[in-house]
């Protein structure tokens, strides 16, 4: 290998060009690639978009014609519940992707680039929220196509609550992702999410569960999101307990993830 005789001449001049990237390396271009990655993953699409839609067709449609106490259709109640479920599976799996990336050594590779760890996490959260939104939209589209009719403000408010509430699970996914570097993290997360969804009243109304479960359920992380998302439909009004539930769990998972994240990315 030949080396130039005046090797030091170019480097300092070029250093003036060298600056760290804006926003710590966060960019919408990367976000777009991340989203394309998710959409290419058949497993993810299966569990976040297809399965909740199929659940609706299997368990929601047979109740067509039944009404809630306020006269609105039961199918809408089921559709909104499953939209929350779709969004929570979507955001959890997108957040938990950091587990795979840590297992593969990608996060180590990233430490050799100017990307700031916080920008990496911001990208993951944004990706999770895009997939979560997609989950809600697909569920609503299937519901609408199957004949669910509710006032516009119910569509909007319920959708918004289901989507924004799934931030809890983006944090949950990140928390799990930083807890265990495993390539197949969603394999054991799937059943956990199903249990949480059950306790959160997404599959069957909590009134149908034994009293003791109902009491416990109020403190589980899905309960709050479910209540808030269905409130526009049921007309139950603003539930402070549900809001407190969402806030508490977001804080708990968010702080937990932040703590593990700092341990993982401590610069030396």
């Amino acid at each position: 290998m030949t080396v130039a005789t005046s090797p030091a001449t170019t480097a300092p001049a070029r250093r003036a060009d060298r600056r760290p990237p804006a926003l710590g390396g966060f960019s919408t271009a990367v976000l777009a690639i991340e989203i394309r990655r998710l959409l290419r993953n058949r497993r993810t699409l299966m569990f976040t978009l297809v399965m909740p839609a199929v659940f609706f067709l299997l368990f929601g449609l047979p109740q067509r014609g039944d009404d809630l106490p306020n006269g609105r259709p039961v199918t809408a109640w089921i559709m909104i519940s499953l939209a929350v479920y779709a969004a929570m599976v979507a955001t959890t799996s997108a957040g938990a992707a950091v587990a795979t990336e840590r297992a593969l050594g990608w996060s180590r590779q990233l430490r050799l680039t100017p990307l700031r760890p916080a920008a990496y996490v911001a990208t993951k959260v944004a990706t999770a929220m895009v997939l979560g939104l997609l989950g809600v939209l697909v569920e609503f589209a299937v519901g609408a196509a199957a004949g669910v009719r509710v006032p516009v403000h119910v569509w909007l408010l319920a959708g918004l609550a289901a989507w924004l509430g799934s931030l809890v699970f983006a944090a949950f996914g990140l928390f799990v992702g930083y807890l265990a570097p495993a390539e197949n993290v969603m394999q054991f997360m799937g059943p956990i999410l199903a249990i949480l969804a059950m306790l959160g009243g997404l599959f069957v109304p909590l009134e149908m569960l034994p009293d003791v479960f109902r009491e416990i359920a109020r403190f589980t992380p899905v309960y709050g999101v479910g209540q808030l998302a269905r409130a526009p439909l049921t007309g139950d009004g603003f539930d402070l307990g549900a809001l407190a539930n969402v806030a508490a769990w977001t804080a708990a998972f968010g702080l937990g993830a932040a703590r593990l994240f700092r341990r993982d990315t401590a610069r030396v």
Binding site: R37, E101, G105, W106, R108, Q109, L112, P114, L115
Partner: peptide, 28 residues
């Protein structure tokens, strides 16, 4: 910049996507 022994690549990205993505982590 460094070329490490193993790991550090995402299997589900294409070769070009990996390079494009990493390029966005740098200013220039």
């Amino acid at each position: 910049a460094a070329v490490m022994q193993t790991g550090g690549l995402l299997k589900d990205l294409t070769v070009a996507e990996t390079v494009r993505m990493t390029a966005h982590f740098h200013a220039r």
